[in-house]
Write a protein that binds this DNA or RNA. Structure first.
Ligand code: MN
Ligand code: MN
Ligand code: ZN
Ligand code: ZN
Lengths: 170, 170
DNA sequence: GCCTAATTGCAACTGAATTGCATTAATGGC
DNA sequence: GCCATTAATGCAATTCAGTTGCAATTAGGC
């Protein structure tokens, strides 16, 4: 069977929406020159498909159970993707790291939303103006990150307070 | 002996620079209406005296060894100070939480510097303009935080790379 | 197909922070 | 000043995200 990649059959037909992110992941990983492996493809495809930043746990949930990738491998793949610039990492107030596929330019300045209730993180990308802040002598700024904190749609004040716990993840 | 407070003698003379933060801590803690305890005073005084945000470890180092406050108590005092609005918490990329005395107004917008090498966190406070970012429907912004990431004076490129490790703290 | 270095899996470990519960001590009333 | 009340602390055990060491596997070049 020709067109095999990481044990997944590659069709020459237009990719279904579900498969598009796998093809995109393949391409991005190949572009680094490093090895194309199943865990890398699965993790990156999951990030590409996600509409929000994903934690390690959320990735474990979303990756096809039939694949059964080790937790440590997921951590290592995430580190690798971040080092390659294919993903970026957001440190949450809950001490959990969440990851986004870095499809768009993230140099200089970048913005995220963080829900203070459930921890949801969204990439906003609508932030440009190099902010003017005065740093002490010898300090070198490299990137600027704007974090908007508040309540996400699922945690807003219109919802009954006790129907959602801080442990809730969307 | 009159004028005792938490086992520390209170002088009526102008306070020495070293004692000023203790007096200020006393006042701030009393203003909450809760109990004035030695751990609360020690932790808040250390935060008030610090020129940068302090981690739990850094607080343990700075608190008078003769006092010997339990680690858990420090964690609980920090939570309490934060809940009272007397301190605020910054989540670092290294998954360590650092704390600032919240002397100045922190409502709405706030800025920090984070050294990507050693983790040092500085409160900048020079950030006001409510930034314009578009949020998805139903998302409610509450605070804005600008994080400037880069290298601190101690970690700058002029320093030999191997003289400072990421574990180093200022 | 074979070789080899890169990658993965597994188990043990780390380090920050939290929890449960018994003990201590700050404060208000006497 | 003393006592009672109950908030706060101390201590041990635990949780939880993430890391490390090392042996086993495998992607990709030949
Ligand atoms: Mn982002
Ligand atoms: Mn601050
Ligand atoms: Zn939420
Ligand atoms: Zn530094």
């Amino acid at each position: 069977m020709a067109g095999l990649c990481c044990n997944r059959a590659m069709s020459t037909n237009p990719p279904s929406p579900a498969k598009r992110h796998y093809l995109q992941a393949d391409t991005l990983i190949r572009s680094t020159g490093a090895r194309l492996t199943r865990p890398r493809v699965e993790v990156l495809a999951a990030l590409l498909a996600a509409e929000q930043a994903l934690s390690h746990h959320e990735l474990e949930e979303r990756i096809d159970r039939s694949v059964d990738i080790d937790r440590v491998t997921i951590y290592r793949v995430l580190d690798w993707l971040t080092a390659q610039g294919l993903a970026h990492r957001i440190a949450g107030d809950d001490r959990v790291r969440r990851f986004n596929a870095a499809g768009h330019a993230h140099e200089g300045a970048h913005a995220h939303f963080q829900c203070e209730r459930c921890g949801t993180v969204l990439c906003l990308d609508e932030f440009s103006a190099d902010p003017v802040v005065r740093l002490p002598r010898g300090f070198r700024p490299q990137h600027y990150e704007l974090t908007v904190k508040g309540l996400c749609a699922g945690c807003g004040p219109s919802r009954r307070a006790d129907t959602r716990t801080p442990a809730h993840r969307h």
